[in-house]
Amino acid sequence: MSHAHTHDHDHAPEHSEVPSDPALRVKALESLLVEKGLVDPAALDAIIDAYERKIGPRNGARIVARAWTDPAFKQRLLDDATAAIAEMGFAGRQGEHMVAVENTPAVHNMVVCTLCSCYPWPVLGLPPLWYKSAPYRSRAVIDPRGVLHEFGLDLAPEVEIRVWDSTSEVRYLVLPERPAGTEAMSADELAEMVTRDSMIGAERLSAPGKGAAA
C-alpha cells in the first residue's frame, strides 16, 4: 500500500492516483452488478451511511438504558430479545435473532464468534477489529479470564464467566450491570455512558466521575 508519491508533481496534467488492488476489485464488482440491475447504488450508499454513522453502538445503548429504567421492558428483553428490540424499532438485517444475557455481581457474560465475526450490527454497528481477530475468536472460549485481563478487566475468582458463541442464526447482546451511583440519571443520560465494549462483555461500566472529585 506504500505508494511512492515523491515525483511528477511538476508535470502537467497530473493523473488520478490509481486505487489499490482491492479498491479496484470492489469497483469492478459494484459497477458490473449495478449495470446488470442486481444492486441499486442508492441502496448501497444507504447501507454504508447507516452502518458508519446512524446505527453504531447507540442503538444498543438505548436498549440497555431502557432495560435499566423500565423493569417490564427488561423482562421482555430477557424473555425475547428479538421482539423487545423490534419494539424499539431496531429490527432488520443480521440482528433478527437476538438473545440478551444479563450481567450480575455473580455472573459476567461475554460474546464471541469463533467461526468468523457474527455480530448484532443493527444494535452495535460494525464490529471492532479485535472482535474479528483470530486471537480473540480462539482465546475467548478457552481463556476468557485471561482475555478480559488484557482488556483491563480483572474479575474476582468467584465471578462466573459465561462465553456465548454467536452464529449466523443467533446474536447476543450483553446487558451490563447498572453502575452504583447512577440512580438519579435519566434513560438518555444512562445511554450516553453505555459503551460498545460493555455490550460485548469486554468491559464493566462505572459511574461517570467515579474516582474523580464528583
Binding site: P22, E30, L33, V39, L44, I47, Y51, E52, Q94, L126
Partner: peptide
C-alpha cells in the same frame, strides 16, 4: 465499507 454493503445488499 463498499464491499460490506455489497454483501449485505
Amino acid at each position: 465499507a463498499q464491499a460490506f454493503a455489497l454483501a449485505v445488499r
